[in-house]
Every structure is written in structure tokens, then in C-alpha cells.
Amino acid sequence: MTTEKLDDLPASRTEPDGSAVVRVLSYNVRSLRDDVGALVRVVRACAPDVVCVQEAPRFFRWRKHAARFARAAGLVHVTGGATATGPMILTSLRAGVERTEDILLPRTPGLHRRGLATAVLRFGPSARLAVICCHLSLAEWERHEQAGAVLKRLAEMGEGAAVVAGDLNDEPDGRAFRRLAAELRDGWATSPWGGENTSPARGPRKRIDAVLAGGAVEVLGCGVPAGLPGVTEADLRAATDHLPVLAALRIPAAGLKGAG
């Protein structure tokens, strides 16, 4: 795990031309079963505009637990949680919410049902971003199908700028990951920043969590924020069993052509 100070990731801002730099964080929080204080410190240090959460609370009083976590992290709940079987989207107050939808994917007997948390967000007057938060199946054949469902839903959302973030349960050479990366840009492969591997949090060996950009989104940097000022190795190990992925993305204003 890197310990260098990573203070070069672009900060959130809205440009004079209406485009926006947006920080997106993807994080499997293991149903808040670990050190929530450490988790909150990591999230706050990342200063995200959007947080795509996997394994959000899903059972007794889940809304209360999700709201408490969001509030502690300086964020608001937008959509997802139990209604999407785990994926959840939180945002800072900077984001305007255009629309949201939670989608349940087909159920396979004997396997945990999966879902998608989706939202269209606006930054500044006209920079719009379609967001899908996902947590794909442990079964190889099923997650490949779910990757296709993610791409189908993204196309249905009809936005020119998009991001998919989540726990893919698949490495870059896996079929599901490759299916997504064939149509979207893998953030780490496009503009690596910070660390690479995300699982397990203690001694990470695999990159199974990712932020992928679509359409007019420009990836300015993406990776595990180990070493980012305020993010300590102790907190990353204590917060949950995955490491987070943080990306800085440039979203064009409506009518502007993105960098691709």
C-alpha cells in the first residue's frame, strides 16, 4: 500500500465555461459493520461530490443507519440502500438531483439478489452526469450478464456524460470487467493515480473495485487514495474490508464537447 502524499488530484470546481470537475468515490462499506469513525474520516478526507456505496445497510432501520452515516460524512442520501439491495448513492450539497431510480436485477435462486442505484446529477448550471452504482455477483456467469444490464441501463438514461462505479467482484481480465471496459473507460487504466489494488483492505492483492467513465467524461485521475492527506493506513484497514477508489472527472457543460 502506498504511503506517499497524494495532493495532486484535482479539487472539485465549476469552470467559467460551465464544465465541472467532480470527485467520485466508490466504497464497499460492509454494511457499516466495522469502524464507522475510521470510515467517515476516509470519506471526508477524499472530499467527494458523489459516493457510490456498496453493501449499504439493508435490514432493520436501514434508512436511519444510512442517514446517520451520510450526515457524519457531510453528505446526503440520494437513492439506493435496501431498495437496490445494497448499492447506494450519496452526494455533497454541490450536486443537484435531476432524477433517480433503483433497479432490481433478475433473481437467481440460491444467490443474493443484486440491484443498481442510479441517478442523474447536475453540477453548476448545466454539467449533467448519469451515475450507476453497482455490486456484481460472485458467480462469474451472472456478473457477466449483470455487466450487460448495467450498460443497457446506462444507454437508457440517455446522458452524454456517465460514470459506473462499484464492486465488480471481477478483475480487469475477467469477462464482466472486460465487458464494461469495452464500452467505458476504466479510470485506473486511463489515468492512474494513487494505489491500484482494492481487496482485501489488509494486504490488497486484487483490483475488483472500479470507477469507469463514459461519453464525454474526461478522467483526470483515479485510484486508491492511500496517502492522500487525511487518509491513514490505520483508518483504511479499520474502516471496511475493501479499499476505496477515488476519481476526479471533468464533466462538460451541456452543449460542450468533452475530451473523451
Rank of each mutant, 00 (worst) to 15 (best):
V219F: 00
L116V: 04
L236R: 09
V40Q: 01
G230F: 00
G214F: 01
D167L: 13
A189K: 11
R68L: 12
E171S: 15
A130T: 11
L90C: 09
G37F: 04
T108E: 11
G158M: 05
C222Q: 04
A45R: 15
I208Y: 01
G187D: 01
L9R: 05
P16G: 05
S92A: 09
E15R: 11
T240W: 04
E218M: 00
I132T: 09
D167V: 08
S19E: 08
A84H: 02
P200C: 05
R175Y: 03
F59S: 14
G96A: 09
T118D: 15
S191D: 05
P200R: 07
T14A: 10
G110N: 09
R175V: 09
S31C: 15
G227T: 04
A84C: 02
G110P: 09
T118E: 14
R250D: 15
L111W: 07
V51C: 10
R122Q: 08
V231C: 10
G255F: 03
L116D: 14
A238K: 02
A234H: 07
C52P: 06
T2C: 11
V76F: 04
F59Q: 12
R33F: 14
P48G: 10
S19T: 12
T14R: 15
R58E: 14
L90A: 10
E156Y: 00
V224P: 00
A70S: 07
E140Q: 10
T190W: 00
G81A: 13
V43P: 10
F69R: 00
T85G: 03
G81C: 12
D49C: 09
P225F: 03
E159M: 03
M1S: 11
A189V: 03
D17G: 05
G96T: 08
L121C: 07
L220R: 00
R30V: 13
F69Q: 07
R153Y: 04
I89Q: 01
P192T: 10
V150L: 06
E140T: 12
T2W: 02
G110C: 12
G37V: 12
M88N: 08
W188V: 15
L32H: 02
H144K: 06
A11T: 05
V97Q: 06
D34M: 10
A117N: 08
A239Y: 04
H135P: 11
V131P: 03
G223T: 03
L249T: 14
T232M: 07
A130G: 10
A189N: 03
F123H: 12
E101W: 00
R185D: 00
G258F: 00
E55H: 07
W62D: 14
I132R: 12
A38R: 02
G81Q: 08
L90W: 07
G203V: 13
P244E: 15
D34Y: 06
V120P: 04
D102N: 03
G96W: 00
D17E: 03
A149V: 13
L228Y: 01
A119L: 11
G221F: 01
L129Y: 05
V211I: 13
